[in-house]
């Protein structure tokens, strides 16, 4: 699905990301609040969905090579996070939905988790 469809499905607000970037497609997800878990995946996910909203959210995505982030539960996102997302060229959005609901909806639209490294 495209990132724009993710925005619609999750009723998300885009905090950083140009219009044309939202045309990009995503197929795999890393979802959770623990960043080391995100970093264990052998395949690089297209989308990080997390309830964690701090600088490490952005930096973990950068290190893991994940290009887009959805912050759930309507957690406040600091201006520094948005600046860093811009600097690292990541799409950053926030939704009021909870992680469970977001997971259910993205799964229904065909998104899957990448495998965990053996």
């Amino acid at each position: 699905m495209t990132l724009r469809e993710v925005v619609e499905e999750l009723s998300a607000e885009v905090l950083h990301g140009a219009e044309e970037e939202l045309n990009g497609t995503v197929a795999t997800v890393a979802a959770g609040d623990l960043m080391s878990d995100v970093l264990t995946r052998a395949t690089i996910a297209d989308l990080l969905v997390t309830g964690l909203s701090n600088m490490q959210t952005i930096r973990t995505a950068t290190v893991a090579g994940i290009k887009s982030i959805v912050i759930v539960r309507g957690k406040p996102v600091s201006p520094q996070m948005i600046d860093l997302a811009r600097e690292e060229d990541l799409v950053l959005m926030v939704t009021g939905m909870k992680l469970f609901e977001a997971a259910g909806r993205l799964w229904a639209r065909g998104l899957r988790t990448g495998e965990t490294r053996a």
């Binding site: 959770g32 909870k98 469970f100 609901e101 997971a103 909806r105 799964w107 965990t116």
Partner: peptide, 18 residues
């Protein structure tokens, strides 16, 4: 399973999120 996959399966079974 991953948390994502489990949440999704439960969602499929009719367990509500929000």
């Amino acid at each position: 399973m991953s948390a994502f996959a489990l949440a999704a399966r439960l969602h499929d079974l009719g367990i509500a999120g929000d």
